[in-house]
Design a protein around this nucleic acid. Structure first.
Lengths: 336, 336
DNA sequence: TAAATCTATGCAATCGTTCCCGACAACGTT
DNA sequence: AACGTTGTCGGGAACGATTGCATAGATTTA
């Protein structure tokens, strides 16, 4: 089958020892220029490529990082992944992507899978159904570098990169208020997710700033984050069944925003006439939507880049890192 | 840092040799039941996990497969990836995804990257800018198992899985014709891509069947497959500038379809009144589009599953495979 | 009773690479 | 002349796991 050429082949062919060949290829000072040239020329000629598996075994690292996201089909995550790859490939790291599809079980499986596969570190955005993070905590305690982005876990002390969710939510809600809506509901994913908490907070602040009282029954949770159409539909039907039903909704997620639009379309509720919507979304075909969607856009690509830079900094650190930071990037409101 | 427990640790702790421990864990017949129990119990207790890197070195395989697609943000590919993962994880294989972003250079880099990282096989959908496939041919000749899906290369003799592109194109074009349009243009990606050729053929057959003459100037190519807005815009402007300009377009790609809609929106051309569109797309938010898009949907998930099954069959074959097949799956036309 | 067989285990090679030592020239220094 | 330096290179252990072969003792067979 596939017989790759090794350092041993070169040594034999040139009548040298493997140590000498290895050193020549790594350009060590103790090898004479003549031998070096001999070896490198021959290596190039027969197409020698160092075996990364052997390297990994020796160096006790795999030069690969694992990424845990809910799903790559989500625009936010696919953009973040582009950012992650741009840094990782630059530094010679492989990126192994795994999807949780918002399921806690799959998250546990994937995380352990990646860890056992000896990734050098993990970039994690929690699934919407994850409240217990002991699977990550135990790995982190054992020394596996982890950096969170987007959906973070405060219980684990490490670097985190997020968008300014509170400000984004504040902007979106304020936009609805300034457009004349007073009865603004809030549709979000699971309550324990960091992004949910932050966005709820921004929503509340906007209401408070404009003197609108907060109503608990105006907030609906979808633990599956828009993955289940029925869940989203139920939440919206409940809102519409309220005595004093809302005239606008601030939606706190990408998948949830599109899901929400689908539900209104199916229920024949006119947007924005009967119901105005503003939501978080990084989709780049939003312009084509009808009804259109005013959206908060996160710098996903940049978040991916930053998170990866921070992770590689931990991985390649000679001494254990003591100081960790949480980077918060600005969001943009696109009015449509 | 992170000190994983090895077979050696177990051996030392139990006063056995590493061979005995290894055999006990692998449940070999020559080990006494007592020793076996002793070892497995202790292994579980201290949380022993075999080191996959060492295994890879020994067994000369990595239990991972590489996937090469243009981009994960594309609905078709993200669905195909879900299918790929469903099979791969089941069989204990890791999936390493890499994106070409339709660039030939990145494809070459990624393919070599994956190969040097010793993946056991490759699932490839060619980038739209790839016409020379020697980078894949040489690896395939050396014995690396490759299965193509979606965008295939006929020069390489191996398994292939595709949708029935010709039939899908025929259906979409026929739909436009049956809707009363007579002057139907065709917007597609690069001319050498297998899907382009197949879809062009279906388009031609539909025209011929309905007695409409084929016009060369009604076919426009976008080698970047919709990645460059300007390219798509130019193509459409050229069509609109024709003396006898078309009244409908059959678009041959996912990204191209949405790109096309954007262009029309920006050019203030009403769809479908001024221009009707039918195209290939696997997006699941198409219902929200305005103008809406009649689309050909491919069984992407199933294509991913099939391609993976075939790849694993090659990888795990004891004897070289002689017979290869090209599986063609049916498409569905969704009229909107 | 001696030889043959069986049982349970250890030794050592292997995968590809790196790197600590040690060897041994050819110098230069007292 | 004896010793230290420097420049080049090879031997071999190590990384973690598997496995063919050897071997100890126990058991069965002739």
């Amino acid at each position: 089958m596939f017989e790759p050429v090794t350092i041993k082949d070169i040594a034999k062919a040139l009548g040298l020892s493997t140590s000498t060949v290895s050193r020549a290829l790594r350009d060590t000072y103790e090898i004479s220029p003549a031998t070096k040239k001999l070896v490198t020329d021959y290596a190039k000629q027969i197409g020698y490529k160092p075996n990364p598996i052997a390297l990994s075994l020796k160096e006790r690292r795999s030069k690969s990082i694992g990424v845990v996201v809910s799903e790559v089909a989500n625009s936010y995550f696919s953009q973040a992944i582009d950012g992650i790859e741009s840094i990782a490939y630059d530094k010679g790291y492989h990126v192994i992507i795994s999807q949780t599809h918002e399921s806690y079980e799959r998250e546990v499986i994937n995380v352990n899978h990646l860890a056992s596969r000896s990734v050098d570190g993990l970039l994690v955005s929690l699934s919407s159904q994850t409240s217990d993070i002991s699977h990550l905590k135990s790995l982190h305690d054992k020394g596996l570098p982890i950096v969170f982005f987007d959906r973070v876990a405060d219980e684990i002390v490490t670097h985190k990169v997020i968008a300014d969710n509170e400000k984004g939510a504040y902007d979106a809600t304020s936009y609805l208020i300034n457009s004349g809506y007073k009865k603004i509901a809030h549709l979000t994913s699971s309550s324990y997710l960091s992004i949910s908490i932050e966005r709820l907070s921004g929503y509340k602040k906007a209401l408070a700033y404009h003197g609108i009282p907060f109503r608990e029954d105006y907030v609906k949770y979808c633990p599956h984050g828009g993955m289940l159409y029925e869940e989203t539909e139920t939440a919206i039907k409940e809102l519409m069944a309220l005595e004093d039903k809302p005239d606008a909704i601030f939606v706190a997620g990408d998948r949830l925003s599109t899901g929400c639009l689908s539900v209104f379309k199916n229920l024949h509720i006119a947007v924005p006439n009967d119901m105005a919507i503003a939501g978080f979304s990084n989709s780049d075909v939003l312009d084509l939507f009808n009804p259109s969607l005013t959206s908060v856009r996160q710098p996903a690509y940049e978040i991916g880049r930053l998170a990866t830079e921070m992770l590689l900094k931990i991985i390649e650190a000679k001494y254990p890192i003591e100081e960790f930071e949480k980077k918060i990037l600005d969001t943009n409101l696109y009015i449509r």
